[in-house]
Amino acid sequence: MYNTEFMLMSFEKPIQILVAEDDEDDKLLILKAFERSLPKENVTCVEDGEALLKYLKRIAPYDDLKKYPRPDIILLDLNMPRKDGREALAEIKSNDDLKSIPVIIFSTSNNKDDIRITYKLGSSSFITKPSSFEELVKITEEIENYWSKTVLLPG
C-alpha cells in the first residue's frame, strides 16, 4: 500500500474526487475501494445533494478550500434525502461555474428512465453499484485511471 501511494505521488497531481452518498456503508466501501488507487485526502464525501451544492459553492461549513478542495469529478448517488441526485445534477449543470465538472452517476438503479434522464441532464457516465467488493475496487480503479490518465480535464 505504501508503495502504491509513493508511486502515485510521483505523478503530477492526483485526481480530486467528491462523493455524494447518504448511505454510511456505501460511503465506507467506496472510500475503502478508492484507497487502493488514491491517497485518502483526494476523496471527500458529502451526505446529500444539498451538502453537495454547498460544498461546490463553498458555503459554510465548506468554505475551507484546503479542507474541501474543488473536485475534478463528482460521484453522485441518485436516491438521497433532502435534495436527490437528479435535482443536484440539474442544478450543477445549470450553474456556469460548476457545469464543467464531470458528474458520474453511481447508483443502485439500472432503471432505463433514470439512465436516459441523467444523461439528458448532462451526466458523464452512469454506473450501477456492483454487488461485490472486488468489482467495486475494479470500478474505482477504472474511474481513477480514466479520468486522471486517459482524458484531459478542465482543471
Binding site: 456503508d25 466501501l29 443502485t108 453499484k129 456492483p130 454487488s131 461485490s132 467488493f133 472486488e134
Partner: peptide
C-alpha cells in the same frame, strides 16, 4: 432486498 445483500457480499469480501 438487493441493497443490504450487496453490502453483505461487499463486507464479506473485505
Amino acid at each position: 432486498l438487493q441493497e443490504p445483500l450487496r453490502k453483505i457480499t461487499a463486507f464479506s469480501d473485505l
